[in-house]
Simulated assay, not measured.
Amino acid sequence: MEQSTHAGFFTRRFGPPPRDGAPNVVLVHGLGLSGRYFVPLARRLAAGGTTVFVPDLPGNARSRAVVRRAPRVGELAGALERWHRGLALGPSLLVANSVGCQVVAAFAARHPRLVRRVVMVGPALEPGAGGLRQCGRLLADAPREPLSLLAVAAGDYLVTGPVRFAASFRHALRDAAESFEGHLARVVAPTLVVRGEGDTIASREWTRRVARAVGDGRAAEVEGAAHAAHYSAPGAVAALIQQFTAGGQT
């Protein structure tokens, strides 16, 4: 793993250096977190020779100091676009978890030429569910996740800070209510929506709704996983992604 900073983003890279025309993957984390919980998946995807980038979004974890306040979802998508162009990556496979799916949906809707395919793992937040209900779903999911993930998340939340986290949560709720599904409708890249079968945050009905909202969308489930299926079942998620990028059915 190589670590560096690009456009203010703390960035991890797995696999070979990026090459013109070679496939690359960008992994986008969820609310208040860092890219650390994507490391197991990144290693598996890079094992096949793919270049994988795992940034910390501005205002979060090791990119916290890049901005003075918590960015809105649209601002995060804009920052991701500047980071992406600065690295001259070309069309990427974007893989996101939770609220990161909202960021990627905005990015893909606005910059379709930079997107090869999209994978959304446990897309959140569901419109109309309300803040208290969403918090309840998050608490219900926690016992279903590995203890090692809870430790990673707790450390990231402490670095990001409760004020930033609360502001980001409000921004994400507003985006879910006002913009997310509109962005999904404008995504032209083939999209796979993945759900852990035990996910209490992204319901089966909601993930299928997300897949239907995209012009070329499909849904899949991972047995024995919850909201962070990419962490608890990285091998299964990597296999789904590899099958999806090869053009196979999931």
Rank of each mutant, 00 (worst) to 15 (best):
S4R: 13
T5K: 03
H6S: 12
G8H: 00
F9I: 07
R12K: 04
R13F: 03
P16Y: 05
P16C: 02
P18E: 10
R19T: 11
D20T: 05
G21S: 04
A22I: 13
P23N: 01
V25P: 05
V25E: 07
V26Y: 00
V28C: 15
H29F: 09
G30T: 10
L31E: 02
S34I: 09
R36M: 15
L41K: 07
A42K: 06
A42C: 05
A42M: 02
L45V: 05
A46E: 11
G48F: 08
G49K: 08
T51C: 15
P55S: 07
G59E: 10
N60H: 11
R64W: 06
P71R: 09
R72E: 15
A77V: 02
A77H: 10
G78P: 09
A79L: 08
L80S: 03
R82T: 01
H84N: 10
R85N: 15
P91E: 13
S92P: 14
L93I: 05
L93C: 11
V95K: 03
A96H: 10
A96F: 12
S98Q: 06
V99L: 11
G100Y: 01
V103P: 09
V103T: 15
V104T: 04
A105W: 09
A109Q: 14
R116G: 14
R116D: 05
R117P: 05
V118Y: 00
V118H: 00
V119N: 00
V121Y: 02
V121N: 02
G122K: 04
G122A: 07
E126A: 15
E126R: 13
P127V: 00
G128N: 09
A129P: 06
G131D: 00
L132Q: 08
L132W: 11
L138W: 12
L139H: 10
A140T: 07
E145H: 13
E145C: 09
P146K: 10
L147H: 12
L149C: 00
L149R: 08
L150V: 01
A153C: 04
A154W: 04
A154L: 01
Y157S: 13
V159C: 12
T160P: 15
P162Q: 08
P162G: 10
A167C: 11
S168H: 10
H171Q: 11
L173M: 00
D175S: 15
A176T: 14
A176P: 14
A177D: 12
G182T: 01
A189Q: 12
L192T: 07
V193H: 01
R195F: 01
G196W: 07
G198A: 08
D199R: 13
D199N: 14
S203T: 03
W206F: 02
W206D: 05
T207R: 06
T207I: 10
R208C: 04
R208F: 09
V210M: 03
V210N: 01
G217A: 04
G217H: 02
G217W: 05
R218N: 09
A219K: 11
V222P: 00
G224V: 07
G224E: 03
G224C: 02
A225W: 07
H227I: 03
Y231D: 13
Y231L: 12
G235F: 05
A238N: 08
A239T: 06
L240S: 00
Q243W: 06
T250L: 00
